[in-house]
Every structure is written in structure tokens, then in C-alpha cells.
Design a protein around this nucleic acid. Structure first.
Lengths: 347, 347
DNA sequence: TTGTAAGCGTTATCAC
DNA sequence: GTGATAACGCTTACAA
């Protein structure tokens, strides 16, 4: 069959210029174009310039699908969070994004809810897209998910907690230690009947660890745990309001409420203001995460500062080390980025 | 050269099984595997089953890079937002994500700040990754960005405003109309000296349109615009606090403050509470975006409900129609999803 | 320093 | 309904 009779396989979309077009324009071979673009120092200055000019003239955009397929290296990182519209993840995402961008990587973000089966499906999808690294907020996964990850050989960082059995690497703070520290702090401030409001612990080891940290601290403080003082609730201001009402009405002697969930403390504080319960006079309030709001309400809320941005930053650094430099010694690393108690007026 | 002497080109990573491995295992050709997976109804029931079994047995994950390259169709959508850690985008992202996931697409998210040059760079990067659709929050782009988009042939939706000259499609509400409506609303409520706080209008046509809407409404209300009543500020609670203080101290007759920026209204309200300025007695407060918080503070804040989630949802639908069904009639569509005034107690 | 040939893992195309 | 073959656009490996 002659070249003339062979019709091109297709030509969907204005797909645009290819490397060979650049090569023709610059009067060099495609291989030289490839080198000029990806390893400029392995090409003579004149070639580099000629190629760069041709690239600009025809508006060439390299095809990462082709280069990744050929080189077996991709420049995308996959991220799975429980929910995209939750402010606590956005800081970590920003940290990740800031770092990987400098190396030309892109982020693929998916939302798994709190369902390990969903997570498994998304992990499969991201691996299918050949991400070169994976960031998971959850630290509990299906067996199948763990198998896929292992088989893929893709480096993974878990972010939501310090896992006992990391799939690969982890960067986080200890939810147990943080809840423990704040509870101890409240105890040392003299509170004797410390209530605890948290998010659902179903499929959520972060919540479970926080409850455990609280309970261990109570024991250390010599306080009797009281099931009526432990409220499991949903996210949001309304949930916080309901929690504080439930505590005070159920256990009038309660003198502090530690809200270990998103904006619960603010909801609780607003409810106290509405009901005329003095904070911290009638009941002290402490929170778990240093969102801007907590600093601006009156009284400002005592809370924990968690290294959300740093977690993203460090996660990205470790992932890139593994991907680019093959830093295999990082395998199995679990990095504890700690936390800090921010003492304000609410407790 | 015999097959035996040819060494494989490489074998980085535990790359895993390929389609040909599945084919061998199932005793069919790779092409049949391909069909069984992507167009199951074009294959006999028995084949389908045999292939599916083989896929499971060897834990095969298809390579999207290869299939996209070969088919010239990708399953990723690119999204560029001004800032990842801003809650106003997360709802839209969720809407997008929910819809595209059902079609097996993944989202690539990048952050461009408010700089068109950054945006241009990111558009190039996303096109390089061969996204099959692009979502831009900004409606102002560099000429170069517009050229790349046009040349690529990739469908685009702009989200942040109703553009006069859409690059391609747009789904949004009108910032001008929304600011106009709220200002008129305040006027009709009897306020005579309405101040306006907004974010920087530099490289931000949303802010500029909001200011224009406010000014047009003042004119319609027969109120004299007063430069001292227009405050350009940064994001956040502290900025809102500062804005209200500046207004009241600069123009004591001011009787309302319309905050057209993220959480500014809450910051302003808190400041009023601290200073003992009755809201709305001394000064009324209105906001621009219905974040949960505004409903829970006292007094609850009058605001605009913007269709953030719907924008994402609709954007995704239009993009997928273009990508999957080739719905070319959508080219040039500008969809106005409107807004709604939520009357509460602060104004 | 540059070029040639082969192949990355999949799908379009055409033959059976 | 199934298979053989040639791309997809790039990079590795090797030769010049």
C-alpha cells in the first residue's frame, strides 16, 4: 500500500500542532525538539533557540498523554477527600497545590464521602488515570484498595490521622493526642465536668481517636466519664447549638464543652448567647480547629491550631521526592506535625 | 533481530497488568478485551463474562493515558479558580464534581490568584494534559489564553460573571444585577445613606460590576453617590470590621452598609456588637452571599442567595453535552442562573 | 550533539 | 462477533 492511498486514521478536534510540526518548522528531527524542551542543556544553544522559536510560532502545546505513556512517568497527583466543600481540607489542598505546581504537576481531586467503598472506586479511577502519587485523607481503606495501591507501586500519603498501619507514608497530627491535650488543658483550668461534642465516628477513625483522647484525659484527670456528656452530632452551626443545649439541659453541672468538630463551637457559643448562658461563666467552650471565625467572636474561642497547610506542603514534598528522586527511604515514614493550644477567652 | 535478543525497553514501577495480559488469560484478542470493557454490548455475553473474570483475576486497571491518546478523547475536566481556599468556590466545585463523576470524568483543579498571566500559564498546562473541557472562574483573559483555547478546540465555561464576550459558554449570575437589586432593596426599606464595601476591583470584573450595580441603583433611588461611602477592602472578618468603623466614623449619617465580599458582613456585624452600634437601628447590614453563618448570627443577616452549586452542576452538564454528544448548538450559550434576596433582620 | 528505530498501551479501521 | 494491523504523539535506546 502506497503512502498516498493511506488515509489518516482520524482528525477529530482542532488537535493542533505536534512535535513533528515543530521539528519540520525548525528544520530538525522530532527527537531534537523533544530534547530541547525537556532537557534543554543537552542541546546546543542554537538548536534550543531555533526550537523555541518554532514552538512559539506555531503555538505548540506538548501532549502530556503521549509523553507520560512513552516515558511511563506522569505529572499528576491524585487527592481524595471526604468532602470538597469542607473548609478544613482547603488549607491542606492549598499547601499541596502550591508545592506541586512548582514542579509542573497537576492535582486531580475527588470526593469520597466517608465511605471506604467509594474511596476504593476513586482510587481505581485515579490509578487508571496513571497519577504518579496519591493523597488520601482517610486512613481506613478496603482490602481491595490496599491491594490496588500496592500493585500499582504508586507512592501514597495519608493525611487525616497518624495511622497505626500506614499504607505507605503519612503526614498528619495525632487526633488522639490533640483531643487529649485540650481535655487536659480544660481540666487544669479547673473544669470538673467536661462535655464532648464530636462528629459521627462511623467510618471515621479521626472522630474515634478524638473521643478516645478525651476519655483517656478524663481518666488522667480523675474525672468520671459520663455518657450523657458525650454528644455525637453532625457538622455545622445548628449542630453545635443543639449540642450545648443538650448538655446543659441533660447535665446541669456540666461546666465545659469541648467541640471536636467543624464550627460546632461557634454554633454552641451563639446558642449560649441566645440563651443568656455566660461563656465561660456558666459553661466554657473549646474548639478543635483554628478557623478565622473563632478569633473574632466574643468571647474568642480557645482552640487547637492544627498544621493544615503544612500537612499539604509536607505531603507534596515527600511525594515529589519519591516520584522525582526515587527517595525510597521515605517509604513507611509517618510524620507527626503536632498541634498547638491557643488559649483565648472562652475557657 | 530475534525476539529473544531484544530486551524490553524498560520496566519502571510495578506498572501492572496490561490489556494483552487480560486477553491472554481470557484466551481472546486484545481488541475483544477493549470492546468488552468500553462497548460491552458489541460483544457476546460469553465473551463479556470471560473478559470480566480475567480482569478481576489479574487485577487489571486500564491505562487512560493510552486510551486517551489512541482515541483522542480524554476524561478529565480542568478547573481554574482564583483561590482554592475560598469557601465560595467549593460549592461550585461540588456541583461540578457530582455531575462529572457520574460520567467517569476526573477534575483537575488549579489556582490562579487574580492574575491573568497565571491563568494563561495554567490554561496551557491543562491543555497540555489534554483536558476535554475547561472551567474558568475569571471572565477576563489574556489574548494568548484566548488563542490557545480557540486553537485547542476544547469547550470552555466561564463561571464568575455573565461575560459580555464569552470565550465560549458561560454559566453564572449577574454581579451587576445582584448588587443593583440589593441596593434597591435597601433603598425601598427606607435607607437613605447606603455605604458599600467590596473586594479589590483590580483584575476583578466581578467586583467592578458590583460597584457599578450599586452606583446605578443609587441613581435610580435618587441618592447621591459619596466616595467616602465606597470602601475597597480585603477579604475576611477583620476587613469587614474595619470597613464598618471607617464608614460610621467618616460619614456618621450612613444608615446602611452593603458588604459585597466574602464574610465582610459578619466582620462588620461583630464590630457593631463590640462598639454597641445597634444593627439595624444604628446601621443596617446586608451581605452578598448566603453562607451558613449569616443565618446564625444575631441579628441574622439579610443577603443574596447565589446559585453556587447550580452553577457547577449546569456547567458540568453543558460541558459533558459538548464533549460526549458534540452538542455544538451550545457554543456561545450564556446561562443566567439568577439570584434571590433573603430578607432577614439586619436590614 | 544529533538522528533513527522501536515501542509505550490502547483504539480505529478494515477484513473475516 | 472477532481479530490483525496500523496508528495516537511522544521518549528510550542506540547509532552516528
Amino acid at each position: 500500500m502506497s503512502d498516498e492511498t493511506r488515509t489518516p486514521r482520524r482528525r477529530i478536534g482542532g488537535s493542533g500542532a505536534k512535535m513533528r510540526d515543530v521539528a519540520e518548522r525548525a528544520g530538525v528531527s522530532p527527537m531534537t525538539v523533544s530534547r530541547a524542551l525537556s532537557t534543554p542543556d543537552r542541546v546546543s544553544a542554537e538548536m534550543r533557540e531555533r526550537v523555541e522559536r518554532a514552538v512559539k510560532e506555531i503555538g505548540y502545546l506538548p501532549n502530556h498523554l503521549a509523553s507520560s505513556l512513552s516515558s511511563n512517568r506522569s505529572t499528576t497527583i491524585g487527592l481524595i477527600v471526604p468532602s470538597i466543600d469542607n473548609s478544613i481540607y482547603t488549607q491542606t489542598i492549598k499547601g499541596l497545590s502550591d508545592v506541586i505546581r512548582r514542579s509542573g504537576f497537576q492535582l486531580m481531586i475527588s470526593e469520597a464521602g466517608y465511605d471506604p467503598a467509594e474511596e476504593e472506586e476513586l482510587i481505581a479511577s485515579l490509578l487508571t488515570h496513571r497519577v504518579s502519587g496519591l493523597v488520601l485523607h482517610n486512613t481506613e481503606h478496603t482490602a481491595q484498595a490496599a491491594t490496588m495501591i500496592r500493585q500499582s507501586g504508586v507512592p501514597v500519603v495519608e493525611n487525616g490521622n497518624l495511622p497505626r498501619n500506614p499504607v505507605d507514608m503519612a503526614v498528619s497530627y495525632s487526633n488522639h493526642a490533640a483531643a487529649h491535650a485540650m481535655t487536659m488543658h480544660l481540666g487544669r483550668l479547673g473544669y470538673r465536668k467536661i462535655a464532648f461534642a464530636s462528629l459521627s465516628s462511623l467510618n471515621n477513625d479521626r472522630s474515634r481517636d478524638r473521643i478516645a483522647g478525651y476519655l483517656d484525659a478524663l481518666k488522667a484527670l480523675g474525672q468520671e466519664p459520663d455518657p450523657r456528656l458525650i454528644i455525637e452530632t453532625s457538622r455545622g452551626l445548628a449542630a453545635g447549638a443543639e449540642a450545648v443545649a443538650r448538655v446543659i439541659q441533660g447535665v446541669p453541672e456540666a461546666d465545659a464543652l469541648f467541640c471536636a468538630g467543624d464550627v460546632l463551637a461557634v454554633g454552641a457559643l451563639f446558642e449560649c448567647q441566645r440563651r443568656g448562658w455566660a461563656v465561660p461563666g456558666r459553661i466554657a467552650i473549646a474548639s478543635f480547629d483554628d478557623v478565622e471565625l473563632l478569633r473574632h467572636v466574643t468571647p474568642a474561642v480557645t482552640t487547637l491550631r492544627l498544621p493544615r497547610y503544612d500537612i499539604g506542603e509536607r505531603t507534596a514534598q515527600m511525594l515529589l521526592s519519591r516520584i522525582i528522586d526515587g527517595a525510597d527511604h521515605l517509604r513507611g515514614s509517618v510524620v507527626d506535625l503536632k498541634f498547638e493550644i491557643i488559649q483565648r477567652e472562652s475557657a
